[in-house]
């Protein structure tokens, strides 16, 4: 064993070692450069998200409500010409398209924001804030889309060439209460069908209104049945009363026994109780029937004046707050 083989063995090792060290250094430099570059890129994309995409999102939302209003007005105007639902839809097609376009732009503005927030691992705050904004924004778009989509259906509920719910207001068309009940029942069939369709709307204000209206119709039907029955009972009572009077007169005329007279008296008393109960049931149902009919126009009116307005106000409060929170989350991430 001499030195030679050792030296010849050590040299490649040293070379290998040197190469390894150089490689490691180069690799770490590359890693550092890449992460710095990635960090720089991330900062740029966050700045873009905050300054451009979020503003685009807000601007896209600002266009939704005017577009929806324009469509609702155009449709209503076209329908009042008068025109059928199909014609009115045709004549408001431009506004409808404009609205749909506004919705589509808003949806793509939203997806630009959602893809633009980068990996949520690094900044959980941004991910959560963006998801919350997305949730609220989406809900707003869906509800406005539902408002427009189901408007023709809603608007046609109380039209004669629509669902014919105005047939519920029987009024003086009926000769008696049984006829009123029949007419009401006839009007209720197509009306109910339309109401149930409205329950499928994407807009909760329509859905809640449809639920209430459905229950109101059921109440009207039940009260109409009660009052019709009471009226028939009453007619029967008038006939029975004559019978009792005749029976009592007979008994008195032929000097009937006290026992028989008392029995007749008891019958009359029971009869009076029936009349009284019939009357109270009638009053109860009639009062509610009239109230139901009287309040129905208010119910319809409040869909827009109260519920839709409240819904829009809700979104007008929530979405700007969500945007602000996301902006602050980005600022926190960018702080240096």
């Amino acid at each position: 064993m001499t030195m030679e083989p050792v030296r010849s063995k050590r040299r490649p090792v040293l070379i290998a070692l040197a190469i390894a060290v150089v490689l490691a250094v180069v690799a770490s430099v590359v890693v550092i450069a890449l992460t710095n570059f990635a960090g720089q890129q991330r900062r740029e994309s966050l700045t873009l998200l905050k300054d451009e995409r979020l503003n685009a999102l807000v601007e896209a939302r600002d266009k939704i409500q005017p577009a929806a209003n324009a469509y609702l007005a155009a449709y209503k105007k076209a329908r009042n010409v008068p025109a059928t639902r199909e014609e009115a839809e045709k004549n408001s097609a431009k506004e409808r398209d404009d609205f749909q376009q506004a919705i589509n732009s808003a949806r793509s503005a939203l997806s630009a924001v959602q893809t633009g927030n980068g990996s949520s691992e690094e900044a959980e705050g941004i991910g959560v804030a963006a998801a919350q904004l997305g949730d609220s924004y989406q809900a707003y778009l869906d509800s406005m889309e539902g408002l427009v989509e189901s408007y023709a259906q809603f608007e046609g509920l109380f039209r004669e060439d629509g669902a014919g719910c105005n047939g519920l207001f029987v009024g003086s068309k009926a000769a008696n209460l049984r006829e009123r009940q029949t007419l009401l029942g006839q009007a209720a069939v197509p009306c109910r069908e339309a109401v149930n369709q409205l329950k499928q709307s994407k807009n909760i204000s329509y859905v809640e209104f449809a639920r209430t209206l459905d229950n109101e119709i059921a109440q009207l039907e039940s009260h109409a049945e009660t009052t019709a029955k009471s009226e028939e009972n009453y007619n029967e009572f008038v006939r029975l009363k004559d019978e009792y009077v005749k029976k009592a007169d007979d008994a008195t005329a032929r000097n009937a026994s006290e026992e028989e007279l008392l029995k007749i008296a008891d019958e009359v008393k029971a009869f009076n109780t029936r009349i009284k109960n019939n009357r109270s049931e009638f009053d109860f149902a009639a009062k509610r029937y009239l109230n139901g009919v009287k309040e129905m126009p208010t119910l319809v009116e409040e869909v827009f004046s109260k519920n839709v307005a409240a819904q829009i106000k809700h979104h007008d409060t929530v979405i700007p707050l969500r945007v602000q929170v996301l902006k602050d989350a980005i600022d926190a991430e960018l702080a240096a």
């Binding site: 705050g125 804030a129 409240a310 809700h314 409060t317 929530v318 707050l321 969500r322 602000q324 929170v325 602050d328 989350a329 600022d331 926190a332 702080a335 240096a336």
Partner: peptide
Amino acid sequence: ADVVRLDKHRMIVDNSMNLYDPLVEQFSG
């Protein structure tokens, strides 16, 4: 930067509290 960041987070939490009223109202309605 840490101070700025913490202050931003403070604002986020404070703003988020304002969301409860409309959200609870919507739920209860």
